[in-house]
Design a protein around this nucleic acid. Sequence first.
DNA 1: TCTGGGGTCCTAGGACCC
DNA 2: TCTGGGGTCCTAGGACCC
Length: 416
Amino acid sequence: MAECVRTVFHVDMDAFFVSVEELFDPSLQGKPVVVGGQRHERGVVSAASYEARKFGVHSAMPLRTAARLCPQAIFVDGHPDRYRDCSEKVYSVLTSFSPQVEMVSIDEAYLDMSGTRRLHGPPLLAAHKLHQRMKAETQLNCSIGIGTSRLIAKVCSGKAKPHGVLYVVPGQETRFLAPLDVRDIPGVGKVTEQKLQSLGIRTVGDMARKEDTFLDEHLGKWGLALAGKARGEDAGAWFAGEIGDLDAAKSISHEHTYNEDTADIAQIEATLMRLSEMVARRLREQKVHARTLQLKLRYKDFTTITRAHSVEMPTQLDNEIFYEVRKLFHANWRPGSQVRLLGVQASSFSAESSQADLLSGQARDKWQQALSAVDRVREKFGESSVRLGTGMKGGFRERTHENPAALPGKSKPPSQ
DNA sequence: TCTGGGGTCCTAGGACCC
DNA sequence: TCTGGGGTCCTAGGACCC
């Protein structure tokens, strides 16, 4: 029965960031373009045009390396809001093809195309129509992978780039996967590839031939699951779960790498304050409170530590987050050491903060209202229009964990 | 080469509880 | 007294993805 066979599309935009930049500046078309920053900056390539890739430039490569490989490349700063806008247009095109669309990142999505045959025709015809409508409505190209599972569809779209379609006919999954390099499987990076190689596994077929006990011992349940798919066993649970549920974020973080390393406390604390503000603002936007706050600290030599603390009362307030990460910083920083990167992360979300203490609850509400107003001003006039600056730090220093109500400047001196 | 920023998921050890 | 086993929470680190 044909209805039993699932049809999954994986749609992946071609050189997305570069293509969007070309829409805003058509003179970039056909040239080697690198998106992500300027040639001398500390940073890595977010995306490279196909012309730049010919010189060996690829994403995640340091900008300075890219500049060396391709001196004539044009370096462009990224514009996240442009990509978000375009991504929304892409999404609306996709939803006109299937009611089941799941964006898995800003430039790729899975579509459940099962049961759309009457509307769109067989898979290859539907893909052709999707190509055309995408180009007409967004001026962007995409590649489309088609299979009976997300895994197959995803691998196919990669092989179809750029602007192509690849369809693995139902029943041919095992034959398609077997000769593939393990590196073609999403989730297999450099480290896992090395590990597999040391076990004598180079292709997906090599993996499928191993005993379950062997796979379980060396690779855990991940290995078992992949080998199962490689043998053509259906793993079920296609939509919701196979890759991950993206409906609600599980963590919110911001980090900053200095252009030059620093050991200046004032600068460091100003950065932590700014990052705390950014995180708190997004918590408020998403209407969640975080219980776990984490500091990330990277030294000059790239050694990186993370230190987390879970607070009793979940928060979405700038100053409470700053207070915690500042404390974590001072408890873990080797004084005088040059800092390269700082990060602030919030996780363990709940919808409402538990109002344990009524008094402190009222004070928190006032803060909440004030900060929502700040958010609205920022929305209207830009990020730099309001700064809850380091000038307030004195107040934070006095405050205690047990007494968050002492925070607002107007309230009584911080006694306990 | 000299290594961003924003995420997800997994592992593993210790605390703590029954 | 020389020592079980499971479950869950917390924290740290790391692989991986776009």
